[in-house]
């Protein structure tokens, strides 16, 4: 049981994809203009990560070594398309804000990275837990980054206006602000919980 919890904790903190592994920077910087967008993107990625980890772990012995990358990509792309179609059908408002970034989950290196590094070597349950851990870690990081950027850039949090308009720093809504906010958050994370390297 303890080892199972450790897998989740590993993905959430020790190997947090955004703050420690620094993987999947494109959606991290692109979608976190608001806390809501960051959360939704994180959850969508977490779902894909869980499903792909489980399925890849399940059929890892059916995939010959030389074609494992295309096979993994096809499986990942399937789940991404399922997420995209479902989002478009049942949450049109969310799809409107995130629609552009959903297909990018396919090329998010976290998903393929975990398939390659973890799911292809562990059993289904562990792979699923790894997907949950890494997915939640990614969601947490994106939501935090989205909160910081929304608060500094638009003076609101999850759409609720908290600060007067003159405090808005436009920079944080744009890409350069994303880099700055991400750097600051990594610094804070390292101050609290230094990574080994």
């Amino acid at each position: 049981m303890n080892s199972k919890l450790k897998i989740v904790y590993n993905g959430l903190v020790t190997e947090n994809p955004t703050f420690v592994l620094l993987l999947g920077m494109c959606p991290t910087l692109g979608t976190t203009t608001s806390a809501h967008n960051g959360l939704a993107m994180g959850l969508a990625t977490a779902f894909v990560l869980m499903c792909s980890n489980a399925v890849i772990s399940l059929c890892k012995n059916l995939i010959p070594e030389k074609v494992h990358i295309p096979a993994y990509i096809v499986i990942i792309a399937t789940f991404v398309t399922v997420v995209q179609l479902c989002m478009n059908a049942y949450t049109p408002a969310l799809y409107e804000t995130l629609g552009l970034f959903i297909p990018l989950i396919v090329v998010n290196c976290i998903v393929l990275g975990r398939a390659e590094a973890f799911a292809s070597k562990h059993d289904v349950a562990d792979s699923l837990l790894d997907g949950i851990g890494i997915g939640l870690g990614f969601t947490l990081a994106l939501t935090l980054l989205g909160c910081v950027r929304e608060l500094l850039g638009s003076g609101s949090l999850f759409g609720f206006v908290l600060l007067p308009e003159w405090t808005n720093m436009l920079l944080f809504v744009m890409a350069p602000g994303a880099f700055i906010a991400l750097g600051l958050l990594i610094a804070v994370k390292n101050a609290i919980n230094p990574s080994k390297s």
Binding site: C59, K60, N61, L62, I63, P64, E65, K66, V67, P70, A71, V74, I75
Partner: peptide, 17 residues
């Protein structure tokens, strides 16, 4: 056991997926 990377296996595996 993991499937060998023979041409037939690769084609079958990818086609099946």
């Amino acid at each position: 056991k993991k499937l060998e990377s023979t041409p037939l296996n690769m084609v079958l595996s990818l086609t099946g997926i």
